[in-house]
């Protein structure tokens, strides 16, 4: 069989057990948190009878494996359950929240890659100034926490200068321009650290490749320096760069929780934070499931991309 097709199938097969284990962990972890959802819902004055009644309604007295089975069966049919508090079906709620989180994280990643990869390449092959400037940016980006950077950006761009709205959100389909205006500050906040990691990884990977003998051989063939750097060296450095981008996507999803809270964006991150405080099991489960699945999907795409860039990866383990 075509080795690339085989590679894709094998990698897809690996995703299934990961999804399973992840769902078990998500299901158990919220139940390990001290505090009872029904007591939180009904308040201090609830009678033991009413508590028992609600517990039975929500199937919280069923054995854990049965609760897990019912939950997974629902999810596989597109039913994420009901919000304990508002009784609203979660599928609709998630359909509103997921695009917001996806938009912030994907835009941040895009910006970080568009800025980080070329700067990382310049830092590796450019002159002393290119190296110093990018090193400075990397130290800044990695050291500065996202909540601080977000607040500073709000103070500067929205407060002092009044260029941008400090917080808020409109859906893209209602008002694309307005939507993007609201996105600028959150995306910048997340992209700075992301870009710093990408620059650092790109620089390191490029330096490793530039020293290899095949680069000398490319020069001996009369290959243009531009082509050596951007076609050959960058492609060889792509594996660590793509891997870091994939892992950093997980960090972005975590950062989205902070940024959504800071800029009052109605995303999955803020949903989870609120739900955890209420011990709202179905919402926490559904929110975490969405975020973790996104991360697994991005890892899958990363691995497939690496396999297509570097034929050695897709050939590995063939024989």
């Amino acid at each position: 069989m075509n080795p690339r097709l085989l590679f894709v199938l094998r990698r897809l097969g690996l995703t299934i057990p990961v999804l399973f284990v992840m769902s078990v962990v998500i299901f158990l972890i919220i139940r390990l948190v001290p505090g009872d959802p029904v007591r939180t819902m009904l308040g201090f004055r609830a009678t033991p009878q009413s508590i028992a009644q609600v517990r039975a309604q929500l199937h919280l007295d069923d054995p854990l494996w049965m609760q897990y089975r019912d939950w997974v069966a629902g999810v596989l049919h597109g039913d994420f359950g009901q919000d304990f508090v508002s009784k609203a079906p979660l599928s609709e709620l998630l359909a509103q929240r997921i695009p917001v989180t996806l938009e912030i994280t994907l835009l941040s990643m895009l910006l970080a890659v568009a800025v980080g990869v070329p700067l990382g390449v310049r830092a590796a092959v450019g002159g002393r100034w290119a190296r110093r400037l990018t090193e400075g940016f990397v130290v800044f980006g990695i050291s500065v926490p996202d909540f601080w950077l977000g607040i500073m950006l709000v103070l500067l761009c929205a407060g002092t200068m009044m260029w941008l709205p400090p917080s808020g959100y409109v859906p893209f389909l209602e008002d694309p321009g307005g939507n993007l205006t609201y996105m600028i500050l959150p995306v910048l906040t997340l992209a700075v650290a992301e870009a710093a990691y990408i620059i650092r990884t790109t620089r390191g990977a490029m330096l490793g490749v530039i020293g290899r003998p095949f680069i000398v051989y490319l020069r001996a063939k009369g290959t243009k320096e531009r082509s050596i750097v951007y076609r050959h060296a960058l492609r060889n450095a792509a594996t660590p760069i793509a891997t870091v981008i994939g892992i950093q996507f997980g960090v972005l999803l975590g950062g989205a929780i902070v940024v959504e809270t800071l800029f009052a964006l109605p995303g999955v991150g803020r949903l989870i934070v609120t739900a955890i405080n209420q011990r709202n099991y179905p919402v926490v489960q559904a929110g975490l499931l969405v975020v973790a699945t996104l991360f697994i999907l991005v890892s899958l795409i990363t691995d497939l991309v690496v396999g297509f860039i570097d034929p050695q990866v897709s050939d590995r383990g063939k024989s």
């Binding site: 290899r212 003998p213 095949f214 000398v216 051989y217 490319l218 020069r219 001996a220 063939k221 009369g222 290959t223 243009k224 320096e225 050959h232 492609r235 060889n236 792509a238 860039i309 570097d310 034929p311 050695q312």
Partner: peptide, 24 residues
């Protein structure tokens, strides 16, 4: 010099495994 290399003078080096770009 780039125009000369690979055109008027060429190089075959020691280790063919290291001479070729593994991703192309």
């Amino acid at each position: 010099y780039r125009r000369v290399r690979g055109n008027d003078i060429a190089l075959v080096s020691q280790d063919p495994s290291a001479s070729l770009d593994p991703t192309f």
